[in-house]
């Protein structure tokens, strides 16, 4: 009896979590008229592609360009973030008492506390002053720092047995050799996890992309979706199709990574 109740609650919660995906998928392939007639249908009557067709070109921005932008911006900023944060966190954990590093750590924690959405307002001013407004580099560089990456790496490097580093030092290895030949190979599984998490987070980013862009050429999928959703004259099927296109890559990446 208790078991039945437990499963019922878990199933109800799962429906709450998963139903929006089903509805998004089904609504992407049904005409607006069909959805208006029967919003609850759980499978399309027939696969209607007009929603997808309607978003192939959104104003000046093509769907292909938005996809390439998303992939390039999330990909490059992820590589930068993982590299810079891993090196930074390593230096900060190996020399925790150096004054410069202590200050840097406090400063980093401060930026974390600052409400992220409001940090983007002054970042606009900074990017403007650097002359990077409207380009890819401003977006990519802004997305290359993140708190979660730093904490995961810090945790990893703190747990590193000091004997390993001492042994390498006695063998006459320089610090660079210790990092690249000893520490980083040991850190590979965590590096992979951090890379996936960062990619998922940066794929979803929309506000910095919108603020730093000066036209739709540098927009990513979420920004395009936000724009289509805000347009007058509702293209419901197109909105659902674009939401689907935005969600599928990261959902698949997550499910595949979960398997391993």
């Amino acid at each position: 009896m208790k078991r039945v109740l437990t499963y019922t609650v878990a199933a109800a919660a799962s429906i709450f979590f998963l139903y929006p995906y089903l509805w998004m998928f089904v609504s992407s392939f049904r005409t607006t008229a069909a959805v208006l007639r029967d919003p609850l249908r759980c499978w399309p009557e027939r696969f209607d592609m007009s929603g997808l067709a309607s978003i192939l070109q959104m104003g000046d921005l093509s769907l292909l360009r938005a996809m390439v932008n998303s992939l390039a911006i999330a990909g490059i900023s992820t590589m930068l973030a993982v590299l810079a944060t891993a090196l930074g966190a390593y230096a900060l954990t190996r020399r925790p008492r150096a004054l410069a590093f202590r200050l840097l750590r406090y400063g980093f924690l401060m930026t974390m506390m600052y409400p992220y959405m409001l940090l983007v307002i002054p970042v606009y001013i900074v990017v403007y002053k650097l002359g990077l407004l409207g380009g890819y580099s401003g977006i990519v560089l802004f997305l290359a720092v993140g708190p979660i990456q730093f904490f995961l790496f810090e945790q990893l490097f703190r747990a590193l047995p000091s004997e390993v580093i001492e042994a390498a030092t006695i063998d006459g290895a320089g610090e660079a050799a210790i990092l690249f030949r000893v520490v980083l190979p040991m850190a590979r599984p965590v590096m992979a996890t951090v890379t996936i998490i960062t990619f998922l987070l940066n794929w979803a980013q929309w506000f910095p992309v919108l603020v730093i862009s000066t036209d739709s050429d540098t927009w990513t999928l979420p920004v395009a979706l936000l724009n289509v959703n805000g347009e007058l004259g509702t293209n419901f099927q197109g909105i659902m199709a674009l939401a689907l296109v935005t969600t599928i890559p990261v959902a698949l990446l997550f499910l595949v990574a979960q398997r391993k």
């Binding site: 930074g88 840097l104 400063g107 930026t111 970042v123 650097l130």
Partner: peptide, 28 residues
């Protein structure tokens, strides 16, 4: 030289934190 290499490691992270984190807060 052993010490400076740590500052070298931390430079990209420090630069990004300062330029896209601390400077904007001060500016704000």
């Amino acid at each position: 030289r052993r010490e400076t290499v740590f500052y070298l490691f931390a430079t990209p992270f420090a630069a990004l934190t300062i330029v896209f984190g601390l400077w904007p807060i001060v500016l704000s």
